[in-house]
Design a binder for these strands. Structure first.
Lengths: 146, 146
DNA sequence: CTCCCTGCAAACTATTTGCACCGTC
DNA sequence: GACGGTGCAAATAGTTTGCAGGGAG
């Protein structure tokens, strides 16, 4: 909970630095994303914001998430099937493991990735600025249900 | 060129096995995807097919690519920004390096990925069936242009 | 008091679908 | 000849935009 608080404060400060105003709806969206352990979709964020601010529109959620993407305070996880999910908790690129049954997403530790990036830079001459590593499979829970 | 020929024949055979008919348009789409070293978008495929079959509709290209995805003869590279690209040349998951300037995509060799998948299975209990590994950066050509 | 932000509706884009006709097998 | 494939137009889904009014700084 302390981490969450810190994360939220970091986000707020970042907004101030970039001359963005702090509105109630915006704060609510920030809070939801800061707490999110479960990589919510826009729709999910929208539903949650509406609990506290019933008049909030979907467009506002989109606008705010777009803005947070801009200043690198959320990470967008785009999956081909048009289902974007967001991580405001760890807004820097990191690997994901996605359950294709229940859509759960977890964050594994994979230190070897750093080495890979270095190897790649040497091999291709690219200046690597970003990456995306996602594994898809069936989680232990869903394997049991079969 | 021999490889391309083989690739195309493999695809055709796979279609036959699955009781799909070979139509001229379909064959044209197959050929484009079999040759593709440059991971074309649906739109790009569409443009090329139209050179030989001007009446071809975009829907047909979509339908055929969807069908090929189904039987695992093309790989879909979904990028969040609504720009899907396709690889009919190597239709199994493999890493990509994407230039964010010129949209070029190349296929690096990264053997370490196998080990990662095994490590992950052990660590998370997931049954991994698929993955996606993409690096984003600036290619040597675009770095020079600056 | 000044703009930025919000909420609504309409616009947009990529993709999918329904259906009549056509052509492969 | 049967039925899957094609091409057109319309439908759909997710996201973005324009604009008027409201509220943060």
């Amino acid at each position: 909970m302390v981490d969450t608080e810190n994360r939220l404060n970091t986000m707020i400060q970042k907004l101030r630095e970039n001359d963005y105003r702090i509105t109630p709806q915006r704060l609510a969206i920030l809070k939801i994303l800061a707490v999110s352990e479960n990589h919510p979709s826009v729709e999910k964020v929208y539903e949650k914001v509406k609990k506290n601010f019933p008049t909030t529109s979907l467009a506002t959620v989109y606008k705010n998430i777009a803005m947070l993407k801009e200043i690198n305070e959320v990470l967008e996880l785009g999956f081909g099937d048009g289902s974007n999910r967001y991580d405001g908790n760890k807004p820097y690129p990191h690997p994901h493991v996605v359950c294709t049954e229940c859509k759960k997403i977890i964050d594994p530790d994979l230190v070897a990735l750093e080495d890979m990036t270095r190897e790649l830079t040497r091999e291709t001459g690219f200046k690597i600025v970003n990456h995306r590593l996602d594994f898809f499979g069936i989680c232990p829970d869903c394997q049991k249900k079969k």
